[in-house]
Amino acid sequence: MPGSGERLSPQGGSLAISPRTVAGPLRKSALLLAVGALGFGGGYGVNALWFDGAAPVQPISFSHKLHAGEHKLPCQHCHLYAERSPVAGVPPMSKCLGCHRQIATDSPEIQKLMAFWQRGEPVPWLKVHDLPDFTHFSHKRHVRAGLPCQSCHGPVESMDVLTRVAPMTMGWCLGCHRERAVRFGTDCWTCHK
């Protein structure tokens, strides 16, 4: 074995490894680590800033601006169950077809919709707003308390591509509950059942 004859000895002058030879590679490793960490932060930042999934690409580019903004359809015209169920509900396909059998039938996006309908398939929309399964949120309570939909969902009527504007985190929920002095609004069991 190379170097097996050399021994580390506090008394002897022949140390096998000098401080310089150790420090050199260590400094290099530290530099590599620092650059790696910088890259990590950068990568995470890029993800958080531009890839936050706040506006996922939907299978059909539905515009809330057109429906809720320009045509002034009330939210609950399509989100049928918001006032009577924990979930607001995504409009059933038959609802879309109710208008689009006649309206804008030559638009390529509507033709995509018709193709789904003719195959008997639902449109696989992607969720923009989604709470973790361990939180209990009820649309019914918030809508009946007179809260406008925009308080959480943002100015949907001006969005061509639906975009999440609120962080939907616990701190954000509690902030509002505190501000409005919601009864039992800060009890754990109100949301975590």
Binding site: L32, G39, F40, G43, Y44, G45, N47, F51
Partner: peptide, 13 residues
């Protein structure tokens, strides 16, 4: 190192 870090950071996010 920088590239791997950036990738890992993105993946972590």
């Amino acid at each position: 190192a920088g590239t791997a870090g950036a990738g890992a950071g993105f993946w972590f996010g």
